[in-house]
Design a protein around this nucleic acid. Structure first.
Lengths: 332, 332
DNA sequence: CTGAAAGCGCTAACAC
DNA sequence: GTGTTAGCGCTTTCAG
């Protein structure tokens, strides 16, 4: 394998000059540069980024800890992050945290060991006590994405509270009083905030929260399906339902279909998260759509700025959702 | 930052011993090991993987070049690959090739420079002439995934030809003769093979291929929608349609919905690729479902074996699809 | 069972 | 405008 020394020898210059030609880090005589470039061309030399990283103390690499790439929402998020990063000349290393503190720790550890220049994390439940402090101790720039945590770092995620409140309110405005909710994974901020939005809407209209109508889907489609199946098979069926993320929505819809309940005839339905192919679902879902592109791009922007040394106060950014008014809610 | 030397000093041993304790690469006296472990614990030492990689000449890293993480199919594939790899102690570095030779080259270059121990590539059109040979020149173990290419390396992808033929045949058996096809991106093997399957089915039944019924969706939803819109607005509408991947399916269905054409009433419809939420589409799609998990796991298995030095003849593995018989085809 | 020492391939002062 | 040199933090012979 050709090294920089080989190239230098062939071009009749020092390794240092080759390095500077490659990096544009200092002026090099045109004629010299040509010789170096010719040598590179001739040998097919490619610089060893590992050695470079070690010497330079910087890897041009950013780590992302996230869960469930299977979920198209996260897939799009990774995609958005990857693009923004690669535009800035960075490479992305992804690890799947499976939304569990345990595997999150492994992922973070490996990322830290690889000396990533920065880190973007969608924290699993409980990580503000374990993995996040660990990252902070190393001084690695860190931005939280999708969910928040109670730490002193930049965070960017979707607007949860008022979006969930609007969704719920929409059902109330249509006359519903018994409104079920299917929550996502417990312990993460988005779940809490969305649920708070649901509660706030009820409270605003003097409706008591009925514990029987609160379902925990654990962000797992099968669990959501089972829970909705149970609730809707019972005596005390709600007349409407709000689902708090796309996995919950798929589970809920499957359950409703199995029970042969019609939407919005038997239950009005609204959900947080939209689908690219929403148009093709039957019924067409009234939803709060996240702006994943913006979330990803913003996280990267904040991170790059921290990596450049910005040490202003942490920013907490909420990207608004868009209300997609379709017909599962039962309007017209 | 603590280094191995620091740990060694604190434990009163040499760096070499610390290294061996960490890697289990040679017998270390129990008492010595304890001291080393205590020092590691006390300092919160984490070994620098970059330095390790440089010294060891191996990064424990595998590169994946793929396109469009937005597409849930690719998202699942990445997920499957990531899991298999991380089980084996490797870390995944993903790059998005956008299915273009140009960006693929950048991705591969960066991966190669990072000295990945192996590479999994879903080749863009034309890369057997450019990027693939480049990888091969470096001697980096390589496995192609999803699509094939005319090179001497392991390849694993879904069964295309006979799956597409079965889908088409199913429509023929139902009496259709004018069957349109929406193809994916030109120049990649999966597109070609699936189209060949379509043609074979027609030929087997003595049906001539009508060029007007061949649509190129370029694996882009919007293009597919436009193409289908045009075809179905014309005079010579087909009575059935087969869509060759999920992006094409979404585009086609959108178009049909816009034209208010019913499935299977106005057009019978079958497609390659299934959706997790297929049950929720209206109509429910008759489809050939890929086994993404198996494809991902197999690719990793082959790669790891090559990385261990296996130099047997290249394997070409086809993972069968599952025929999901639902009602968009118009049976029953 | 343990240590010394020579790199891995590059970057970045520092010197001229 | 260019070269010399000292590392970056680890692995791995080679000795003992």
């Amino acid at each position: 394998m050709t090294t920089m020394d080989d190239v230098a020898r062939i071009a009749g210059v020092s390794a240092s000059t080759v390095s500077h030609v490659l990096n544009g880090t200092r002026k090099v005589n045109d004629e010299t540069r040509q010789r170096v470039e010719a040598a590179i061309e001739a040998t097919g030399y490619r610089r060893n980024v590992v050695a470079r990283s070690l010497a330079a103390g910087r890897t041009n690499t950013v780590g992302l800890s996230i869960s469930a790439l299977t979920n198209p929402y996260f897939g799009s998020l990774v995609h958005a992050v990857e693009r923004a990063l690669s535009d800035a000349g960075y490479v992305l290393i992804v690890g799947d945290s499976h939304d569990q503190a345990e595997s999150e720790k492994r992922v973070i550890d490996s990322l830290l060991g690889r000396k990533v220049d920065g880190m973007i994390v969608a924290p699993a439940a409980g990580s503000e006590r374990t993995t996040l402090p660990e990252i902070m101790r190393t001084g690695t720039p860190l931005v939280l994405i999708d969910r928040g945590a109670d730490i002193d770092r930049d965070q960017v995620g979707p607007e949860n509270f008022s979006s969930a409140r609007s969704l719920t309110e929409h059902l109330i405005d249509l006359g519903h009083r018994r409104i079920a909710v299917v929550r996502g994974l417990a312990g993460i901020s988005s779940t809490t905030e969305r649920f708070d939005g649901y509660q706030a809407a009820l409270a605003d209209h003097g409706i008591a929260v009925d514990p029987d109508l609160i379902l925990d889907g654990e962000s797992n489609t099968d669990v959501a399906e089972r829970e909705v199946l149970t609730l809707m098979s019972g005596a005390n069926r709600p007349t409407a339902m709000v689902s708090m993320n796309n996995a919950m929505t798929i589970g809920a819809l499957k359950a409703l279909r199995r029970l042969d309940l019609s939407i919005p005839g038997d239950v009005a339905f609204v959900c947080y998260d939209d689908f690219e192919w929403s148009d093709l679902f039957e019924p067409q879902l009234t939803a709060a759509a996240q702006d994943v592109e913006t979330i990803g791009a913003t996280a990267v922007r904040l991170l790059l700025s921290r990596m450049r040394g910005d040490d202003g106060p942490p920013q907490l950014i909420r990207v608004p959702t868009t209300f997609q008014h379709r017909n599962s809610c039962g309007c017209a």
